[in-house]
Write a protein that binds this DNA or RNA. Structure first.
Lengths: 191, 191
DNA sequence: CGTTCAGTTGACTAAGGTCAATTCCCGTGG
DNA sequence: CCACGGGAATTGACCTTAGTCAACTGAACG
């Protein structure tokens, strides 16, 4: 739980009374590699803090996966479009490694907002940060070629590159595994 | 200002004292068609509520525009990735029609959060909503073909279709104007 | 009437998708 | 220790679709 408290303290002042509240509202859980934190069709009931491990957040369309994000230890993950209005999710979240996580339920989070002095601010700052990431993502998909997106991925997430199969990276970049393979070939030749 | 107050009341209880606070913190401004609310390179200093008119939010890359969103009367618009951390923006926001807007500055918004009872909640709910839109956008760009994106645009924003030139829609869909023209041709033939 | 600019159309190119075969890697079991 | 099996990654041949360059049409406006 230390890593979680520390993550919260990155955003707001957090007293020991607040810590007790967090102790009460967050629950520890483990997932095996390959297990699902959320399956499309379910309603996303928790915001998840990843203490250790790695997950991917993916959209299924016509029977195929599109991995939209990766999240690793020290980060929060959640399908907000399902969680916030508490309606069924269109996406899935899967553990790519064994994971230890801390869950807070929707109601628990509302309670957190009330009981923790800067709780509302935490909620706002947290979502603001996620938002900026997503907005950056949109800009990148719009304006960058797959090749550039792959190079940026290597540059921005060197830690993750080593930890996930290439076909997940391909879908993150927005191409088929075959095409990513060709892009890699082009890059290795030109440079 | 009525439309603004009404928009806020969609999110939170809003007393007449709060209305006075809003009166103090929001400033009216007008933009001519073609004018810029924000130019790439500037820091986005305001959250803008559109009382009337229509704007586009676009990214410039290699000298070309990519329109990522449209916003119309009754909606808020802002480049959060610039506004929240108060650093230079990579995007521009342009009036596509004459606009009447209400501005609130970064400091003004912090004050709003403090002085308005449910201010923090308003900030959180507001950004949550924008966030869900952007997340939907990401999913769509990842998984939908340009043709489907165009059909969805027609379906989701029938009001806007009539009000903007086709080449802005093309860039929103993610293709060149020539390609959108061909997509339209395909669609008119098949159906 | 001519200028301008959005929109369309044509010919050709480039790049990713598709289908299929092959190679590589790694772990398992004989 | 080696052979095998299975999934990941690569490669090849061909297809589809958007990009590019350029010409042309059409409507708006002075």
């Amino acid at each position: 739980m230390d890593l979680l408290i520390q993550a919260i303290r990155n955003y707001i002042p957090f007293s020991s009374a607040d810590e007790a509240t967090a102790q009460k509202l967050f629950h520890r859980k483990e997932y095996k590699k390959g297990g699902h934190l959320l399956t499309a069709g379910e309603t996303c009931r928790y915001v998840v803090f990843i203490e250790s491990g790695l997950v991917r957040y993916y959209i299924t369309k016509d029977g195929e996966d599109q991995t939209a994000y990766f999240n690793k230890e020290g980060e929060f993950v959640c399908d907000y479009p399902s969680f916030l209005p508490q309606k069924p999710s269109k996406v899935s979240i899967q553990a790519l490694e064994d994971c230890v996580v801390w869950l807070i339920s929707y109601d628990g989070l509302q309670q957190f907002y009330k009981e923790v002095e800067y709780g509302e601010r935490f909620g706002r700052l947290g979502i603001e940060e996620v938002f900026v990431n997503v907005a950056t993502q949109v800009a990148s998909i719009y304006t960058d070629t797959p090749e550039l997106r792959y190079k940026n991925f290597l540059h921005n997430y060197p830690a993750i590159v080593q930890r996930v199969p290439q076909y997940y990276i391909a879908s993150y970049v927005g191409v088929k595994p075959q095409s990513l393979s060709r892009i890699r070939k082009r890059l290795s030749r030109t440079h």
